[in-house]
């Protein structure tokens, strides 16, 4: 894992979030694809030009304080409970590694939700436009009714944020738990049915979309952030002129944090512009 460490000014951070981005960043296309690729690029450019101001309203993201994170994995489980994800579908795992040699040794870890990249590689590859980045808030979601389950987006995500729903169930599915609705399932908070979407779909973290869309105010933190034992996961609007107020912990200013603290984003070199920052 390569990490770029850098400290940026407030202006830089804001610019980067609000700045217009060329969609013609794909390098390494063979001659066969260049012609093909240019067409939609032009289209995208055009749409960018016309809609910049009205569409880019919010850019929701997370600032995760690794000084606080204790590797309890409450976020992982809270997400499962909130979204009723099946076995093997985990929107926010905690990644861990050990470095050093006894007695100079450390275990390092970080929770890894979807980064809701500003330049998401996953949405571009979808053959049926089933996954996309919402213009209004930058949340990357999958339309389960459209996804054909080809899993191309899983391969395209550099961060392992996408999971295929194989239709597996927890043993509890046979109990009353199977009648507990999930906010994600087809038809407002429906039940999980065999062979029906999202079974056979690719699934991912949505920043708890149902909570965000509930009143359109983005006043509720995603489940991982809410439950976090050390309050390490800050969620909020990184594009807000008011300074990226964190909806999780009232009074906490995300942009201020990004200026005051050192931070990294993962695989920055890919140009994906993750919307999840890790404070070091």
């Amino acid at each position: 894992m390569e990490k770029l460490e850098r400290q940026e000014t407030l202006e830089n951070v804001i610019d980067r979030q609000l700045g217009k981005r060329s969609f013609l960043k794909l390098a390494g296309l063979g001659i066969f694809t260049a012609a093909v690729a240019s067409l939609p690029s032009i289209l995208s450019e055009a749409s960018e030009e016309t809609g910049t101001n009205t569409k880019r309203k919010f850019r929701y993201g997370m600032v995760i304080d690794l000084k606080r994170c204790v590797n309890c994995k409450a976020c992982t489980v809270a997400c499962k409970l909130e979204n009723k994800t099946p076995p093997g579908v985990v929107y926010n795992p905690v990644i861990e590694e050990e470095i050093g040699e006894f007695p100079y040794v450390q275990r390092r870890w970080f929770p890894k939700p979807c980064f809701h990249c500003d330049n998401p590689p996953c949405t571009k590859v979808c053959p049926v436009t089933a996954t996309y980045k919402r213009e209004k808030d930058g949340i990357v979601i999958v339309d389960y009714d459209a996804c054909i389950g080809c899993r191309y987006c899983i391969t395209a995500c550099p961060y392992g944020a996408r999971y295929f729903d194989f239709g597996e169930n927890y043993p509890a599915q046979q109990t009353e738990y199977g009648r507990v609705p999930s906010p994600e399932f087809h038809g407002a908070h429906g039940l999980r049915r065999e062979g029906k979407s999202p079974v056979g779909n690719v699934r991912k973290c949505t920043f708890c979309l149902h909570l965000q869309d509930e009143n359109g105010n983005y006043t509720r933190p995603p489940a991982c952030s809410e439950t976090c034992m050390s309050k390490a996961i800050h969620f909020g609007d990184l594009a807000s002129q008011a300074g990226g107020l964190c909806v999780t912990h009232e009074g906490c200013n995300l942009k201020q944090l990004l200026v005051e603290r050192k931070w990294i984003r993962l695989k920055e070199e890919l140009g994906t512009e993750p919307m999840v920052y890790y404070l070091l």
């Binding site: 939609p40 590859v125 053959p127 054909i148």
Partner: peptide
Amino acid sequence: RFWYVFTRPNFYSMM
């Protein structure tokens, strides 16, 4: 849903 690739195309997708 294989035919969605014709009804909801993504011109950016190599697939």
